[in-house]
Computed example of a mutant assay.
Amino acid sequence: MNVKEASKLTGVSTDTIRYYEKEGLIPQIDRNDAGNREIDEKIIRRITFAKQMRAAGMSIKALKEYTDLVDDFEDNTEQQKRILQEQIGAMQEREDDIKFAIDHLKYKLEHYEDHMQKTENELRQLETSDGK
C-alpha cells in the first residue's frame, strides 16, 4: 500500500509517517520503480507501535532509543524497562502539572465574581489608560 493508504489505516498523517521514517522510528520503507513508498504489514505494525507510544507520552528521543534497542536483536530488556520507567516518571510529573492547572482553573471559576471579574476590569482599565 502507499503512504496515503497507510495513513488512512493507521490514523497517522502522511507527514508523520515520513517523519517517523526520517527519524528511524520505523524502518526504511521500500519504494517501487516510480519512487513511491510501498508499505507492508511490518511497517504498519511499527507505525501503530510508534503512534501508541507517542500517545502514552513517550518523547521522540526516548522512542528512538527504545526502538533501537528492539531492533538490536540482543536482550535489552533491562534498558527497555528503564526507558519505560523514565517515561512513567515524566508522565507523572505532567500529571501533577495538569492537576495543578485544573485545580487553579476550578478555583478561578468558583471565585469568578469576586476575583476574575475584578482582575479583568483592572486589565481593561490598563489597556484603555495605556498611551491614550
Rank of each mutant, 00 (worst) to 15 (best):
T16S: 01
I17P: 00
R18C: 06
R18Q: 12
R18E: 12
Y19R: 07
Y20L: 04
Y20D: 00
Y20A: 02
Y20N: 05
E21D: 10
K22A: 02
K22C: 05
G24I: 11
G24E: 06
L25F: 03
L25E: 00
I26A: 03
P27H: 04
P27D: 11
P27Y: 05
Q28C: 14
Q28G: 02
Q28Y: 08
Q28E: 07
R31M: 13
R31Q: 10
N32T: 08
G35Y: 02
G35F: 08
I39W: 07
I39K: 06
D40W: 11
E41C: 10
I43V: 14
I43A: 11
I43F: 10
I47W: 07
F49R: 07
F49H: 04
K51T: 09
K51H: 08
Q52L: 08
Q52E: 14
Q52I: 11
M53Q: 07
A56G: 11
A56L: 09
G57T: 02
M58A: 03
S59M: 04
S59I: 05
I60G: 10
I60N: 12
A62D: 15
L63R: 00
L63I: 06
L63V: 02
K64D: 14
E65V: 06
Y66T: 02
T67D: 02
D68Q: 06
D68N: 06
L69G: 00
L69N: 01
L69A: 04
V70N: 05
V70W: 07
D71G: 03
D72R: 01
D72A: 06
F73P: 01
F73M: 04
E74V: 04
E74D: 02
D75F: 00
N76H: 05
N76A: 00
T77D: 07
T77G: 11
E78T: 07
E78H: 13
Q80K: 02
Q80W: 00
Q80T: 00
K81L: 15
R82N: 09
L84P: 05
Q87H: 03
Q87A: 04
G89V: 04
E93C: 14
E93S: 13
R94M: 09
D97R: 14
D97C: 11
I98D: 04
K99H: 12
F100G: 10
F100T: 08
A101L: 15
A101D: 14
I102Y: 06
D103E: 05
H104T: 13
H104N: 09
K106R: 04
K106V: 03
Y107S: 05
K108H: 07
E110M: 05
E110H: 02
E113T: 12
E113W: 03
D114C: 02
D114G: 09
D114A: 03
H115W: 06
M116N: 05
M116H: 07
M116D: 05
K118V: 15
T119K: 09
N121T: 15
N121I: 12
Q125C: 13
L126V: 14
S129D: 15
